[in-house]
C-alpha cells in the first residue's frame, strides 16, 4: 500500500510513454496498456486510494496523457502493419489486365448529357465549316473584359460577380476571350465556336452553380451581315430542336456586339400556344447574339471596316435541359449513376 501511494506520477508517466514508444507490434502495445492502465496497474491502484483532490487531478492527468500516447502509437502501428501487409499483396503491374483480374465485365458506359450536347453542337458547326476552339479558362482581365468592351460599370467586373485569382487574373466569365486570341493569331475569314467551362460567383441553388458551359460562335469575314447571324442561328436551332422551329430576335445589350440581340426559338413543346417550358410566351430564350463591335477589330489592330462579323453565345446545360427535359442544374453536377446511365 505504502509503495503504491508514494508512486511518483512524473516517473510513472515517463516510463509509460517510453514503453509505448518502444512497442513494436500491436500485441506488444496491448501488454503496455495492461501494465500501465490495467485493472491492477500502479496508476489504477493509486487512483483508488487517492485522499486529496490535488493528487487525484495529477494522477488523472497522467492517465489521460498515457491514454493519448497509447492511442497515437496504436494508430501508427496499425498503419505500419497495414503497409506491411499491402507490400506482400504486390502484383506485377506490367502484366496485362486480363492476367491480373480479370477486370469486371461492365455494361457500356455513358457520356454526360452535357458532353452529348457539346458533341452535337460541335458537329453542327463543323458542318457549317467552323473550327472548334477550347480556349483557356484562366484569363487576364485584359482578354476577359477590356478586349470585349466591358465598360467600367459592368457588374461582371466586380469580384462579387466573377472569380478573380488576383487583380489581373480571372476565371473566364464567358468563352469569348478565346475569340480574341484567335483574332490575334490570324486574319479572317474566321468561323469558330469556343466551347467550355465558364465561371461566375453564384450561390449554389436549384438553378445556379458557379460553373457552367457555354458555346460561343464568331464569324468574321468580308460582307457579313446581321441577316447572316439570323440565318446561321436559325439553321443551328433547327438542327438542335427540330426542323419546324422559328426564331425571333429581340434587341438587347452586350458589351462586344453592336447591335445586340437575344434570340428566341419557337417553343418545341407547345408549338407557340404557350406552356410552362416557354413560360406561356410561345418563345424560349436561347442566349445572346449580335454584330461584332468594331472595337474588337481595333483591339487586335485591324481597320474598323475591313471586315464585319457576328457573334453569339448559348449555354450547354440550358440546351441539355431543354432537349432532355432536365429540371434545374443540380443533376448536372450530382453525378448520380441512376441519372447518368439514361443518356445512352
Amino acid at each position: 500500500m505504502d509503495k503504491v501511494a508514494t508512486v511518483d506520477p512524473t516517473d510513472l508517466q515517463q516510463e509509460a510513454l517510453s514503453a509505448a514508444a518502444e512497442a513494436r507490434t500491436l500485441a506488444a502495445l496491448n501488454e503496455v496498456r495492461i501494465h500501465y492502465l490495467g485493472r491492477s496497474s500502479a496508476l489504477k491502484l493509486a487512483l483508488r486510494n487517492v485522499r486529496d483532490r490535488e493528487t487525484g487531478m495529477t494522477l488523472n492527468a497522467v492517465r489521460e496523457t498515457v491514454e493519448a500516447a497509447l492511442t497515437a502509437r496504436e494508430e501508427e502501428l496499425a498503419r505500419a502493419e497495414l503497409e506491411e501487409r499491402l507490400v506482400t499483396e504486390r502484383v506485377d503491374v506490367t502484366l496485362p489486365a486480363q492476367l491480373l483480374g480479370p477486370p469486371k465485365l461492365r455494361p457500356r458506359g455513358t457520356l454526360h448529357p452535357s458532353t452529348l450536347v457539346r458533341r452535337d453542337v460541335e458537329d453542327i458547326f463543323l458542318g457549317l465549316g467552323y473550327e472548334i476552339v477550347d480556349g483557356r479558362e484562366v484569363e487576364t482581365t485584359r482578354y476577359n473584359f477590356d478586349a470585349l468592351g466591358f465598360p467600367d460599370w459592368h457588374p461582371a467586373r466586380s469580384p462579387r460577380a466573377s472569380l478573380f485569382l488576383d487583380d489581373h487574373t480571372v476565371l473566364r466569365t464567358e468563352t469569348s476571350p478565346a475569340q480574341i486570341h484567335k483574332m490575334e493569331e490570324r486574319r479572317p475569314p474566321i468561323y469558330m465556336v469556343s466551347i467550355g467551362r465558364v465561371y461566375r460567383r453564384d450561390t449554389i441553388d436549384a438553378t445556379h452553380f458557379p460553373i457552367f458551359h457555354q458555346f460561343e460562335g464568331l464569324a468574321i469575314d468580308e460582307g457579313i451581315t446581321l441577316a447572316d447571324l439570323k440565318g446561321t442561328l436559325l439553321h443551328v436551332m433547327r438542327e438542335l430542336y427540330g426542323p419546324d422551329r422559328e426564331m425571333r430576335f429581340r434587341t438587347h445589350y452586350f458589351p462586344f456586339t453592336e447591335p445586340s440581340m437575344e434570340p428566341d426559338v419557337s417553343c418545341f413543346n407547345c408549338g407557340g400556344a404557350g406552356c410552362p417550358i416557354c413560360k406561356h410566351s410561345g418563345w424560349i430564350e436561347m442566349g445572346g447574339s449580335g454584330v461584332v463591335d468594331p472595337y474588337l477589330y481595333e483591339f487586335v489592330g485591324w481597320g474598323p471596316e475591313e471586315y464585319t462579323g457576328f457573334a453569339f453565345g448559348m449555354g450547354i446545360e440550358r440546351t441539355a435541359q431543354l432537349r432532355y427535359g432536365i429540371a434545374g442544374i443540380r443533376p448536372f453536377w450530382e453525378n448520380d449513376l441512376r441519372f447518368l446511365r439514361q443518356f445512352r
Binding site: 463543323l126 475569314p189 468561323y191 451581315t225 439570323k230 440581340m261
Partner: peptide, 23 residues
C-alpha cells in the same frame, strides 16, 4: 436595326474559304 429586326431576312454568309474539322 432595332426598329427593323423582324424584317431582317435569314441568310447565310457567302463563304470564300472553307475549313471545319476537329483538331
Amino acid at each position: 436595326a432595332r426598329f427593323k429586326l423582324p424584317e431582317v431576312p435569314f441568310t447565310l454568309p457567302r463563304r470564300q474559304a472553307m475549313f471545319g474539322r476537329l483538331t
